[in-house]
Computed example of a mutant assay.
Amino acid sequence: MRALLATLALLGASLLPATPAPAAPDASAARVEAAPGTVRLDGVPVRLREGTTQVVTVNRTRGFRARVTFWALTRRGWVERMQALDGRVGYGGLVAGPRRRQGSGTTPLGTYRLPWAFGTHRRSEDWDLRYRRIRRGDHWVQDNASAYYNRYRNQAQGGFRWRLPSGHPDASERLTDYRQPYEFSVVVGFNRRQVRHRGSGIFLHVNGRGATAGCVSAPRWFLVRAMRKLDPAARPVIAIGR
């Protein structure tokens, strides 16, 4: 009898489902994040923020021409996602950010955030960045006497001298006057502390006919794709070098 019971016990155990072994961690699912520090991409030094996984580099090639490259951090390291050879910088060349002066036509060297965007189109479901559509009366304030210096503001809100003629050193940019370059425009976080006379309104925008007045520009196709790729969770930055 004991032998029969033992046989039945063994048979029952063999019919039970096997307990699955613990799954090995999936390395491909691991989240890759950058630690603060400096890396060099396309020869441009990039000061990374904590968690940055998207970078746009701007490498001036000659005159006001520049190579603009979009990078993403992967398990294999920094990978180039797209590159435009016909980028542009300011007609005044490049200058260290703290030494920049308003109206100089210079583009500031350094690494800056890409926090949000504006343009002429309705917001697309494909865009993750915060976005504002340009409407009548919208300006980028360049009035050094205004508390809204280097800020986006509508003239109906007041607080800056929007009636100043375009040739005046404190004249603000009426955004509807620049529909082609500002069709897609990503704000560059230069002079966030509103240091007067340092400069206002530095963007990554669509190419115009020639050099910029201090912004970085790239072909339209690059901005169209960048708007789809840029993700605030990736803490994107732009690094401008020589």
Rank of each mutant, 00 (worst) to 15 (best):
T52A: 13
E80L: 09
R40Q: 14
G103A: 09
G110L: 11
T69S: 12
H139Y: 15
P45F: 00
P108G: 10
H168D: 15
A72S: 15
G51D: 10
R40I: 12
Q54P: 14
S146N: 00
R62S: 15
L175R: 01
G90T: 04
E50P: 09
T176C: 03
T69P: 04
H168A: 11
Y91G: 07
G51V: 11
D170A: 12
R62F: 14
G97V: 12
A145Y: 11
T57G: 06
W127V: 07
R101S: 13
F118K: 03
W127Y: 06
T69W: 00
N144P: 10
V95D: 07
V56E: 04
T106L: 06
W71P: 04
F64T: 12
R122W: 05
G87Y: 02
R136Y: 11
Q102T: 01
Y112R: 05
G137H: 11
L85N: 12
R67V: 13
R123M: 13
R135K: 05
N154Y: 08
A84P: 07
D177H: 14
R123E: 15
T74F: 09
W127M: 11
A96F: 01
T106S: 06
R81P: 06
L114I: 06
E80P: 10
Y148N: 09
D170V: 06
L109W: 01
R60I: 05
S104W: 11
R101G: 02
G97A: 15
R100M: 14
R49A: 12
A156H: 08
A66M: 00
L109Y: 04
T69A: 12
L94P: 00
R65S: 15
R151H: 08
N144I: 14
R88F: 12
G103H: 05
G110I: 10
R151Y: 04
G90L: 06
A117F: 07
V46T: 05
W116G: 01
D126V: 06
G87D: 04
Y112H: 15
R67F: 02
Q83Y: 01
Y149I: 01
D128K: 15
R81M: 07
T107K: 00
V56K: 00
D86M: 11
F70V: 05
V95M: 08
R132Q: 10
T53V: 10
T111Q: 03
H139E: 02
L114F: 05
V44D: 02
R123P: 12
N59W: 03
G158Y: 08
R174K: 10
F64Y: 13
G167N: 12
Q83I: 10
R67T: 14
R100I: 02
R65D: 15
W162S: 13
G77W: 03
L48F: 03
Q155I: 11
H139A: 08
A156Q: 14
R151G: 01
T107R: 01
W71M: 00
A84C: 06
R88W: 09
V46L: 10
G105D: 10
